[in-house]
Simulated assay, not measured.
Amino acid sequence: MARRPAASAPQVSIVVPVFDEAGAAPALAREIATAFKGRSFEMVFVDDASRDGTRAGLEALERDMPELRVLAHRKNAGQSRAIRTGVLGARGEIIVTLDGDGQNDPADGPKLVDALLAGGPDLALVGGERVKRQDSRAKKIASRIGNGVRKRLLRDTANDTGCGLKAFRREAFLRLPYFDHIHRYLPALMVREGYRTAFLPVNHRHRTTGRSKYTNLGRLWVSLSDLLGVMWLQSRARDPAGVEEL
C-alpha cells in the first residue's frame, strides 16, 4: 500500500484498528477529533475485514471529517497487522494508537504526544498504564499475572503493555521486526533497538458496545510462544553503541 504524499503532512497520525466495532467506531472518531482539535493530526482507522457496519459507518463519517482516513483489509489479519497497516499508511512522524472499542480515552492522547516530544529523539515510546481498569475480575487477574511474568523476563519496565493507548515515533516502529501480537511487546523491542521508553497513567472506560475479541485462555497460549520469541530476539541483539559517519 502506497503512503500518501508528504506535502502538508500532519505531525501526528492516530491509528485505530477496528474489527466489528460498528457501535463504537464513529463516536470514537468524533472523540479523537475533539481531543486533538487545534493540533496537526490525521486519524487512520484500519478496518480489519469487519462483518458488521463498521466500514460503512466510517465511510459515511469520512465525507464530513477531512482528518479521517479509512483503510480496509480484504481479510481479517489481526490487531497487530492492522496497526502496522495504519503506521505504513500514516503521514505523521508521531503515531498514537488506541483500541477501537472505546475503552481507551482519546483525551489522554495529547499528553502522551507532548511527553514524547519533550523527551528527546532517543525517547521512542510513551505508553499508557490504565488506572482503575474497567474490565472483569478474571481479565484483570490474568493481565496482572501476564504483565508480571513478561516484565520480569524481558526487563522492559512496563507495567501494562496490554494498554492500546501509546505514542511512538513512526521511524522507530518500522525498525522493529514484525510478528503477530507485536503490539504487546513494543516497549521491550524499542529498548532492544537502543531507544528509551516511558509510561504515564491513563483513563480506562467500560465497553458499551460490541464484545471482546480475546479470551484469557486463547491469549495465554499465544503469549507463551510470543514471550519465548521476544526473549530469543533479545538474546541475538548486538549494540553498536552509536554510529559515526566518517
Results as ranks from 00 to 15, higher is better:
1 M>Y: 06
3 R>E: 06
4 R>K: 10
9 A>H: 13
13 S>R: 00
19 F>W: 11
19 F>D: 01
23 G>M: 14
28 L>A: 04
29 A>C: 14
29 A>E: 11
30 R>F: 03
33 A>E: 14
38 G>Y: 13
42 E>S: 05
43 M>R: 08
46 V>N: 02
46 V>L: 13
47 D>S: 09
47 D>V: 11
49 A>D: 15
52 D>H: 10
52 D>R: 07
59 E>L: 10
61 L>Y: 04
62 E>C: 14
63 R>N: 00
66 P>T: 01
67 E>G: 04
67 E>D: 07
67 E>Y: 06
69 R>P: 03
69 R>W: 00
74 R>K: 14
74 R>T: 10
79 Q>D: 05
86 G>V: 11
87 V>N: 02
89 G>M: 06
91 R>W: 11
93 E>A: 12
99 D>N: 11
100 G>H: 10
101 D>S: 07
103 Q>N: 13
104 N>L: 00
106 P>S: 04
106 P>V: 04
110 P>E: 01
112 L>N: 07
117 L>P: 00
117 L>R: 08
118 A>R: 02
119 G>F: 03
121 P>H: 03
124 A>R: 07
125 L>S: 15
129 E>Y: 03
140 K>Y: 05
140 K>M: 15
141 I>T: 09
146 G>V: 03
147 N>W: 07
152 R>L: 14
153 L>V: 09
158 A>K: 03
163 C>L: 09
166 K>L: 12
167 A>S: 13
169 R>Y: 00
174 L>G: 14
175 R>K: 15
176 L>C: 06
177 P>Q: 09
180 D>L: 06
180 D>W: 04
184 R>Q: 12
186 L>E: 03
186 L>W: 12
188 A>D: 06
189 L>F: 05
190 M>G: 01
194 G>C: 14
194 G>H: 10
196 R>V: 08
196 R>S: 10
199 F>T: 01
199 F>G: 00
200 L>M: 15
200 L>W: 12
200 L>I: 07
203 N>S: 15
203 N>W: 01
207 R>N: 05
220 L>H: 02
221 W>S: 13
222 V>N: 09
224 L>R: 04
225 S>P: 00
225 S>M: 11
228 L>K: 12
232 W>I: 10
234 Q>Y: 01
236 R>H: 07
237 A>H: 03
244 E>P: 00
245 E>P: 10
